[in-house]
Amino acid sequence: MTAITWQRRRATASRFWADFRSHRSALAGLGILLFFGLVAVFASVLADPAGLDVTKATAPAHAAPSADYWLGTDQNGRSVLTLLIHGTRVSLIVGLAATAIAIVIGTIVGIMAGFYGGWARSTLMGFTDWFLVIPFLPLAIVMATVLGASLLNIVIVIGVTSWPGTARLVCAQTLSVRERPYMERARALGGGDWHQMTRHILPNVMPLVLAHVVLTVSVAILSETTLSFLGLGDPTRPSWGYILDNAYGTGAMSNGEWWFVLPPGLCVVLVVLAFTLVGRALEVVLNPRLREGS
C-alpha cells in the first residue's frame, strides 16, 4: 500500500513539473529566485559581514564604482555591494516569515468562516472586511511606530496586515468543498469538525493557498521595502529598503549617484517580478478551471 501511495505521489509530482515547466516565464522567475536564494544563503561567504560595521569602514564616502568597490560606497564609506548582498538575506527572510504568518492566520480564519457559516462566517468575514477597508500603509506605519524598529516587529506588522486576502480566498473555496458528497459521507460516519477541516477541507484548499503564498511573498517584500524606506526598518540589519532610504536621505538621487539607487531598486523589481511569474504559473497549474481556460 505504501509503495502504491509513493508511486501515485511521484506521478503527481511529474505531472505538476511537466505542467509548470511549460510556462517559460515561470521558469525564468524560478531561475531568478534560485539566484537570489543562493546569494542570501551564502551572503557571509560572498561579502564579509564586517563590511556592514560603520566603525570599520575605511573607504571614502560616496565613492564611484571602482575595481575595489564594484558598486561604489555609501555615505559612511561602506561597500554598496556588501550592503546589497546582505540586504538580500534580510529582505527574503522578512518576506517569507511575514507571508507564513499571513497564510496561517488567513487559512484558519477562512476555513472556520466557510465551514461553520452563519454567525461565525458573518463575524469573521466582517472582521476581515474591516482589515481590508483600512488602508494598508497607514495601518502598517502606526503598528511599526508603536512596536518599534526591529526585524521581528516588521515581520509581525506585515504578517498581521496581509492575511485578509488569503482568508477571503480560503473561505470561498471552503464553501465549495463543504457541499461535496464526500463531506456528507464524513459527517454521516461521525467525523467531527476537526476531522473534517483537517482531513478533507485543508488538503483541498492547500493548492490555492500555495499559489497565493508565492504572490503574497512579493507583496511582503514590497511592504518591507516601503517601511524601511520610510525609516521604520531595523537600522542594524540593512535591507534593500534600508539602502534606498539612505540613498534618499543623503541626496544620492539628486547627485547622480546611480550606484547607490539603481542596484537595490532593480533587486526589488526582479524579485517581485519573479515571485509574481511563479505564482501566476502555480495558480494556473493547480487550478483546473484556470488551466482549462488557458
Rank of each mutant, 00 (worst) to 15 (best):
A100Y: 05
I101H: 06
I101L: 13
I101T: 02
A102E: 01
A102Q: 10
I103E: 03
I103N: 02
V104C: 07
V104E: 09
I105T: 08
G106T: 02
T107W: 03
V109P: 03
G110V: 00
G110E: 05
I111N: 05
M112H: 07
M112D: 00
M112E: 09
A113L: 03
A113D: 00
A113S: 14
G114N: 07
F115H: 07
G118Y: 08
G118F: 01
W119Y: 09
A120L: 02
A120E: 02
T123V: 15
T123Y: 02
T123E: 00
T123H: 00
L124C: 10
M125E: 13
M125R: 03
G126T: 07
G126K: 09
G126L: 11
G126Q: 15
F127H: 10
F127T: 13
T128Q: 12
T128G: 05
D129S: 14
D129E: 15
F131T: 13
V133M: 06
I134S: 01
P135Q: 08
P135L: 12
P135F: 14
F136N: 15
F136E: 15
L137W: 11
L137D: 12
P138I: 04
P138S: 14
L139Q: 13
A140Q: 07
A140E: 10
V142R: 12
V142F: 14
M143R: 05
M143N: 05
M143V: 13
A144Q: 11
T145R: 02
T145M: 01
T145G: 13
T145Y: 11
T145N: 01
L147P: 08
L147S: 06
G148W: 11
G148V: 12
G148K: 05
S150C: 00
S150F: 04
L151C: 07
L151S: 12
L151A: 05
L151M: 15
L151Y: 01
L152M: 08
N153P: 06
I154H: 06
V155E: 02
G159I: 13
G159L: 09
V160N: 05
V160F: 13
T161Q: 03
T161E: 06
S162I: 12
W163A: 00
P164V: 14
G165Y: 06
G165S: 14
R168I: 12
V170Q: 00
V170A: 04
C171A: 09
C171M: 09
A172T: 14
A172R: 03
A172N: 06
A172G: 14
Q173D: 11
S176E: 10
S176D: 00
V177N: 01
V177E: 06
V177H: 02
E179W: 04
R180Y: 08
P181G: 09
Y182E: 12
M183P: 01
E184G: 09
R185I: 15
A186N: 06
R187L: 07
A188R: 06
L189S: 11
L189E: 10
G190H: 04
G190S: 11
G191E: 02
G191V: 05
G192K: 00
G192I: 01
G192W: 03
D193E: 10
D193V: 15
D193Q: 10
W194P: 04
W194Q: 12
M197H: 05
T198D: 08
H200Q: 14
I201K: 12
I201D: 10
L202M: 15
P203C: 08
N204T: 04
